[in-house]
Structures are given as structure tokens and as C-alpha cells.
Design a protein around this nucleic acid. Structure first.
Lengths: 199, 199
DNA sequence: GTCTATATTGAGATAGAC
DNA sequence: GTCTATCTCAATATAGAC
């Protein structure tokens, strides 16, 4: 079946995105060439252009896909709570969801916040809007907790960014098979977040 | 005095580092060319090689200088406390120091944690050792607070990384002239950190 | 110490054969 | 849909004149 020319596969598209995701995360967008990506996939560089108009679109598509998955997954997670769930329970749900979701996609996460400056201006605006939506989701929880007296937070906007920054820190050091399971890590972070917004 | 050839200045070295710092922070190491740096300084690309053996050394030197300054500044700050200062006061000192120091060098900070993957292997090891020293400084404070019963922290290593990650988040959004002064921002973060490690 | 000029390499992207 | 071949441009780094 091995052909050295012609149509090899109908899943080349996904394989290109997988390779680009991994290489961009490891070396950075600017440091990775189309030839490297092609080699990883097992095609020639020219073939990539059947799937993407250019390198920039490849980056943008990866980031957009990641952000849309994130937002969709949170909406599912959020609506799976009980009707009367209070802000504290919602916050714990968010913290555990955020860590769990992101740890399953370390490469996409890394790209989504390291490669913002390599987006074209118009693509940057699009991605930033998606990011803002996600931050708004957390801020809504925090505001609700403040309103119901469960939380004491001097500035919900800053607290939102602080919590996300803290949680994202997990990605820089956690490796599976280490001292703690992912669930234990979630619990440690939840303990800190819970106290940091507490009365 | 304007000469179009020959020796222009004895401060070309610092100007090269300044330009590289700014350009690397803005566009990323891999996306910036030696020609761009030279243009910014006002010399030809070849002249840069009187000051650095190659581009990699330029990056490493910037990062190493930043990390050494950070460690030195913290040692000064740490030893300026009273003799009997307890862990809570030390932690507040650290939080305010960290934010204040880093906000004065946003470009260097950005580079120091975004460009790690563009260091050669041996340079990476050197920079990581300096980073570890800084983390150890914070962890020592946290451990002391746990020992004296001031803090309740399930895992001081994770807490160290979480606190630094949270504080570093400031750099991604704070712009002077905004809603809050830097000192107010410090206070907001200190409030969260204090509570997050509390009993 | 800086210039101009250049060696060498590799980048992104395209054209046309199969 | 993929290949080979190639266009065009720009990268790092060096050599030698001034």
C-alpha cells in the first residue's frame, strides 16, 4: 500500500494540526518552520498548503479551536451543577474544571498564551474576545459570591485574573507520575483559592 | 560630530542590550533579527558582533543579568527587616517587593519566563538554577510561617509556585495610569496571598 | 569600532507534473 | 493530494577596508 506519491490519507489535516501544536508548544511559533511540520507529518512542505493558506492561519486556527473548546466545556460543566448551587460550590467547580481541562491539553494551553504576540492584529482581537468571555465566566461567579456575602473580594476583576494566573501555574511544573495525583493538586489549589476569596 | 563611519560611541554595548531587551519582549527572541536590533541602535548588523559572539549569548546575558539583579535586590530587601520580624511580615515584604521590582522591568520579566525554551541547554540550566534560588527564598518564608503556626499550608512547594504565578499575573494586565495605583494593586494582592496561606 | 560586502543557509510560498 | 523544483527574500555570521 505504500505509495511515494499521490493521495496518502484523508486525515492529513488533523495530523498537520497535531504536529504544529506540538512543535509550536515546544519551540515557539517563530522558531518552527513549515518544513519541520511537514517532516513530522511525513509529507513535503508544499503539501501543507492544501490545508492552510499560510503559517499564520495554522496558528490562529489552533488557538481558536482551543478557546472554543474551553468555553463549550465550561458551559457543560457549569450547567451540570444543581439548580440552587451557591457561589462557593460554583467556584470549586470552576477551579477543578480549569485545572483538569488544561492539564489534558498542555500544548494548546501553552500556545494560547505564549503565542498571542505572533498573531496578526485581526486574529489577536478575535482570540482576545474569546479569552475575555472565559474570564467573564469566572468573574460572574466571584461577583455572585460577593453579592451573597460568601466572598470578600476588594476587586473582582483583579481577583479573576489572579485566580486564573495562579491556576495556570500548575502547567509549568506538574508532571503526571509525580508526588501528587492531579486530584490532590486540584485540592491543594482549591484550598488556596477558597481561602483567598474568603470572608 | 556626526560621523558615518568609525567609532561612534563607547556606550554601544548597553544600547544593544536595551534594544534587544525591548524587541525580544515585544516580538519574541526567534522573531527578532540581528538586523532589527542593529537598526534600532543605529549601526550595521555586523557591528553587533563586536559586543556579542552571537544572538544566543545576547539572550542569555539579558536573562542572567535580570535574575542576578532580582536575587541581589531581594537580599537587600530581606535584610532590611527588623531582627525579630515574623513570617507574616516577611511574606508581606516579599509580596510587595516582588510586584514592585517586577513592574519596574516588565520587558526583562517577560523575557525571563517566555524565552526559556530558546536558551541553549547549558544556558537553560544556569538560568533555572537562579530561578530556583529565588523560589527557595519564598519557600523559606512559607516554611517558617508553618513552623511558627502563622500559616496553614498543605504543601509549601506548591504554595510557593502558586504565589509567584499569581503575582506574575500582574504584569499581564497592569498599566500605570489606570484605575489603581501600584501600591493599591500590591495591597489587593497581599490581601489575597495573606488569606490563601492563612490558618 | 564600524562600515560594506558577502558567504551560506534556510525561510514562506507557488507552479506544474503525476 | 502530493510530489519536485524553484522563486524570492531574509536570516546569522564573517572578512577585510577604513
Amino acid at each position: 500500500m505504500a505509495r511515494t506519491q499521490g493521495s496518502h490519507s484523508d486525515i492529513t489535516g488533523p495530523r498537520i494540526r497535531d504536529a504544529a501544536l506540538r512543535l509550536f508548544a515546544q519551540h515557539g511559533y517563530a522558531a518552527v518552520s513549515m518544513r519541520q511540520i511537514a517532516k513530522e507529518v511525513g509529507v513535503q512542505a508544499g503539501a501543507l498548503y492544501n490545508y492552510t493558506p499560510d503559517k499564520q492561519s495554522l496558528l490562529h486556527r489552533l488557538m481558536e479551536g482551543h478557546m472554543r473548546e474551553l468555553l463549550a466545556a465550561w458551559q457543560v460543566q457549569e450547567s451540570s451543577g444543581e439548580a440552587g448551587e451557591d457561589a462557593m460550590a460554583q467556584l470549586e467547580r470552576f477551579v477543578r474544571f480549569h485545572i483538569s481541562f488544561h492539564m489534558q491539553r498542555p500544548d494548546a494551553v501553552f500556545i494560547a498564551y505564549m503565542e498571542l504576540r505572533n498573531l496578526s492584529e485581526e486574529n489577536f482581537i478575535l482570540i482576545e474576545a474569546l479569552r475575555s468571555s472565559y474570564e467573564d465566566a469566572l468573574e460572574a461567579v466571584l461577583k455572585r459570591g460577593v453579592d451573597t456575602g460568601r466572598f470578600r473580594i476588594p476587586d473582582t476583576k483583579i481577583a479573576t485574573l489572579a485566580v486564573i494566573a495562579m491556576l495556570n501555574g500548575v502547567m509549568t511544573w506538574y508532571r503526571s507520575g509525580g508526588r501528587l495525583s492531579l486530584e490532590e493538586v486540584e485540592s491543594v489549589y482549591w484550598d488556596m483559592v477558597r481561602k483567598s476569596v474568603g470572608v
